[in-house]
Design a protein around this nucleic acid. Structure first.
Length: 231
DNA sequence: AAAGCCTTCAACCGCAGGTTG
DNA sequence: CCAACCTGCGGTTGAAGGCTT
């Protein structure tokens, strides 16, 4: 019995990725239109990494659709609401936030949001006021954005819109948005939602700049650069 | 100036669940 | 049906940089 280790630990590099390794991985995935199977990727791409490490590097850092930088207020709010409903299911939460990874959200939760909530007197695990069962008026007001909105508006039926709610910052629209996000089957995300969710930030430029910084100009629109460095 | 402490986050680890032969 | 394999997930770690004393 026993599961094979994900990779032969001997001769496998660990630790931070170098620009050269990033370049190799990006080149490989983009030239091949994706990955065939992650276990084979390092060998085919000429990397001394295990497949798991390649997958993580790609999904958490190199993927072209990633949005970089701190979470916006709207995104943070959504994370809190979704966490209240879903718990530590980071991948589920991440799937509702375009361009964000589970790792990113998990880190942000642990380093920022958790502290914020504690400071506000909210238990980050239960989303209840710290040290008491029922919310006192003071604490309740502090929790109103995350706790109350998501609890009071999740009616089982009648709100299952197939399209995202209007972009808005008021509470009820936010509730609708959370309801919509909690639907299992999500429709394609359209531009208006994207703009709302990422708070109007430029969604595309950061990763591109990173590619450029390691010597790749525009992986999606210029396939010619791929041949030059792939081995 | 520098030593120690704190914070952040990329990366790793081990397990679970799904798929395949 | 079962074992082997693959991928994805969530928890944890540790290096690096920032901050405080």
């Amino acid at each position: 019995m026993g599961r094979q280790p994900c990779c032969d630990k001997l001769g496998v590099k660990r630790g931070p990725w170098t620009a050269e390794e990033d370049k190799k991985l990006i080149n490989f995935i983009l030239t091949n239109g994706g990955h065939c199977c992650w276990r084979a990727v390092p060998k085919l791409a000429g990397l001394l990494r295990c497949g798991k490490s390649c997958r993580l590097r790609w999904t958490n850092y190199l993927r072209p659709d990633l949005k970089r930088g701190l979470l916006s207020e709207a995104e943070e709010k959504l994370v809190i609401d979704l966490h209240a409903k879903l718990g530590n299911r980071w991948s589920k939460i991440a799937s509702k936030l375009p361009g964000r990874t589970d790792n990113e959200i998990k880190n942000h939760w642990n380093t920022h949001i958790k502290k914020k909530l504690i400071k506000m007197g909210i238990d980050p695990v239960t989303h209840e006021p710290l040290g008491q069962k029922a919310a006192s008026p003071d604490v309740a007001s502090a929790t109103s954005q995350s706790n109350i909105t998501s609890e009071s508006n999740l009616e089982p039926e009648g709100q299952a819109n197939s399209s995202p709610p209007e972009s808005s910052t008021n509470a009820s629209s936010h509730d609708q948005l959370v309801n919509w996000l909690l639907e299992d089957e999500l429709p394609e995300i359209d531009d208006s939602w994207l703009n709302f969710a990422v708070n109007g930030d430029d969604f595309s430029s950061d990763w591109l700049l990173d590619y450029q910084s390691i010597g790749i100009e525009d992986p999606l629109f210029d396939g010619s650069i791929l041949e030059s460095s792939s081995n």
